[in-house]
Simulated scan of single mutants.
Amino acid sequence: MKRKKKHEEHHDEAWLLPYSDMMTLLLALFIVMFAMARVDEEKFEEFRSEFGTIFSSRSGSNSIIGNVVDLGTSRVVPAEQAGDGGGEKTGTGDEVRSISGEEAKEAVLAQKLEDQKMAAAREDIKQALTDANLDGDVEVSLRSDGIHISLEDSILFQSGSTNLSNAVRQYLDLISGHIKELNKEVVIAGHTDNIPDPNSTNWELSAKRAIVVMDYLVGTTGVKQEKVSIQAFADTQPMATNQTTEGRTKNRRVEIIVYKDYE
């Protein structure tokens, strides 16, 4: 009696297709990573061509390599340089321009232009004071934060007074024109020496004197009030020693500070 042949089982081989597709995509990914890491484009083109030939037989006319990898003439912009938008294409689309990079360049240029403008304004103020023979009692300096104009107490107020002298009005009239032209934030700071004032504290005295100068600049010369504020320092920021009469005179002062937009 003949034995019946056992029916041979055939395993399902459908899993091979998605597996091969996955391997193809992984290989394409590695090629992309390779392309981004290499700078020799000529060798990469040869490499891409060889793999394109291999996969074209199973991917049809649209090669995975050809679709995924395209060096062209574009350049990769790092995320920290490209900003949230990742950059934008310009011209023919072959170059990627970093938006944040352009903004940074514009900011640097604006700062340089402002520095030049402030330096020119400082020279104009000094020249105007010299021409009017008023430069002896006013110090004009350009610092990292802006223009500092220091008016000595001898031309501002009588001792213990908060009323502007007639002489200082001429100084303020001359200075105010340049302040208005610059159109920047202005701080008026009052300072005193270390001698206690009999009628009020040195803090109150320095604040009152700063307010008087501010009122004149805004109410008489037309400086924009939204651009002006005051500070009071009493005797905490002396320019000279308080041990001499000359030093105390220098310390009793009002400073007009025209601040830069960029520091």
Rank of each mutant, 00 (worst) to 15 (best):
M1N: 14
K4V: 10
K6A: 10
H10S: 11
H10L: 13
A14C: 01
A14E: 06
L27G: 06
F30D: 03
F34E: 01
A35V: 07
E42L: 11
F44T: 06
S59H: 09
N67M: 09
V68L: 07
S74Y: 05
R75L: 03
Q81I: 04
G85A: 12
G86S: 05
T90E: 15
G101C: 05
A104S: 14
E106F: 14
Q116S: 14
I125L: 07
T130E: 14
D131K: 15
V140C: 06
R143E: 12
S144W: 12
D145R: 13
S150H: 08
S150V: 13
E152D: 03
F157S: 05
S159E: 15
S161M: 02
T162S: 10
N163L: 08
N163Y: 07
I175S: 00
G177P: 00
I179L: 15
I179Q: 05
G190D: 04
H191D: 10
P196N: 09
K208H: 07
R209K: 12
V212F: 03
L217F: 05
T220C: 02
V223N: 06
V223P: 02
K224A: 15
K227T: 12
A232N: 04
A240T: 06
A240D: 10
T241A: 03
T245L: 10
T245S: 13
E246T: 15
E246H: 05
E246N: 14
